[in-house]
């Protein structure tokens, strides 16, 4: 069993606007270990979204290699990347995670490769939700994030990627959600991108992204972030 879940090797992402080139990510090297909770801190415009797009296989790097669970993803087709995203990666966003016309259970069951109601209920219970018949507009933001978390876990992915998962939450809810993440990491490695430096206390590995460059264990640099 591979112990390295996600690996970035000299990854560059460059956008072209006419003759101008914009390097959104510059020479990124990263290694995420199994059962770890990793946080990438970065202010708005630092390249977090681009980084997450690459890590969740929604985009491809201009240069460099991305390896998930020992598999090099550079030469995969769109369909193959979609399959990996579905089975091996779970994604949680800051908001708008759920389909408004599906209830909690249906939202969780949607991406299941082989639908299993009992498993969905068990996963929902893991994140502390029992009212599976409710619709998203009947839930608090924290509960909605819990449902999103359950959905991200439903296919037993090796990696869960969360983009500002606590961005809309208060302090109490943030603490609750992060404690839940700490429990989940024993099933799936977790990668969180955030601009909230307070989350650094929950992680095993801390990264700092600034102007497209990634630093591991940034010392006190991240404390200058606006949050």
């Amino acid at each position: 069993m591979n112990n390295n879940i996600l690996e970035f090797q000299e990854v560059w992402k460059t956008y072209k606007d006419g003759k101008t080139e914009l390097h959104a990510l510059k020479d990124i090297n990263l290694l995420l270990k199994k059962n770890s909770l990793n946080i990438i801190l970065g202010s708005s415009g630092s390249g977090k979204t681009t980084f997450l797009n690459l890590a969740s296989l929604l985009d491809t790097p201009t240069k460099g290699k991305i390896i998930i669970n020992g598999q090099n993803l550079s030469n995969l087709s769109k369909i193959e990347r979609s399959k990996i995203r579905r089975t091996e990666i779970g994604i949680i966003y800051q908001r708008n995670n759920l389909f408004p016309y599906l209830n909690v259970l249906e939202n969780v069951m949607l991406p299941m490769v082989s639908p299993d109601k009992n498993k969905s209920i068990t996963v929902l219970e893991t994140v502390g939700l029992t009212e599976t018949h409710k619709f998203p507009d009947e839930l608090s933001i924290e509960e909605q994030q819990r449902v999103a978390m359950a959905r991200a876990m439903i296919n037993d992915p090796i990696l869960i990627i969360a983009d500002e998962p606590t961005g809309e939450l208060g302090k109490k809810s943030t603490k609750m959600l992060m404690n839940l993440m700490k429990r989940i990491k024993y099933k799936s490695t977790i990668l969180i991108a955030s601009n909230n430096a307070n989350l650094s206390g929950y992680c095993d590995e801390l990264f700092f992204l600034k102007d497209g460059k990634l630093k591991k264990n940034p010392g006190n640099n991240y404390k200058s972030l606006n949050y």
Binding site: K78, F99, P111
Partner: peptide
């Protein structure tokens, strides 16, 4: 539009 993007991120193919 949002829903289509969400489906994509959940791993459904464009097809």
């Amino acid at each position: 539009k949002r829903e289509i993007c969400l489906l994509k991120s959940l791993g459904f193919t464009e097809h």
